[in-house]
């Protein structure tokens, strides 16, 4: 029998130590959003609604980070000027 440990010696609970950005969820996608830059009015509604933080705003134009985009199509559906088209991957 080993000796009982005091609370200071107990191991700390599980600690996730890698960022999930290492895990690319882009391969879940069937349809990919394509932004028509000439139509985009830069309202950033797509950025607000995107559940996967995959819409990138650099201060000048809106682009998609296909590493994480799961292709849900919320951005295309909510775009007020229909500047986003869902195109089948392949």
């Amino acid at each position: 029998m080993s000796e009982l440990k005091g609370w200071r010696e107990l191991p700390i609970g599980a600690i996730p130590f890698k960022l999930s950005t290492e895990f690319k969820t882009g391969d879940w996608r069937t349809f990919k959003p394509v932004i028509k830059q000439d139509k985009c009015v830069k309202c950033l509604l797509c950025w607000i609604y995107c559940p996967d933080m995959s819409i990138v705003w650099d201060g000048e134009k809106v682009t998609v980070n296909y590493d994480y985009c799961k292709g849900c199509g919320i951005c295309a559906h909510e775009c007020p000027v229909k500047a986003i088209e869902m195109v089948k991957e392949g």
């Binding site: 960022l19 999930s20 950005t21 290492e22 895990f23 690319k24 969820t25 879940w28 996608r29 830069k42 950033l44 950025w47 607000i48 609604y49 995107c50 559940p51 996967d52 933080m53 995959s54 705003w57 650099d58 201060g59 980070n65 590493d67 994480y68 799961k70 292709g71 849900c72 199509g73 919320i74």
Partner: peptide
């Protein structure tokens, strides 16, 4: 000012495995 806020790094990172189209990460 969304145009300013959108330049910040997100506090919930992408690569999470909630379903496509889930409203919770938003």
């Amino acid at each position: 000012n969304i145009k300013e806020l959108a330049k910040q790094p997100p506090k919930l990172l992408p690569g999470h495995r909630l379903c496509a189209g889930c409203s919770v990460p938003t």
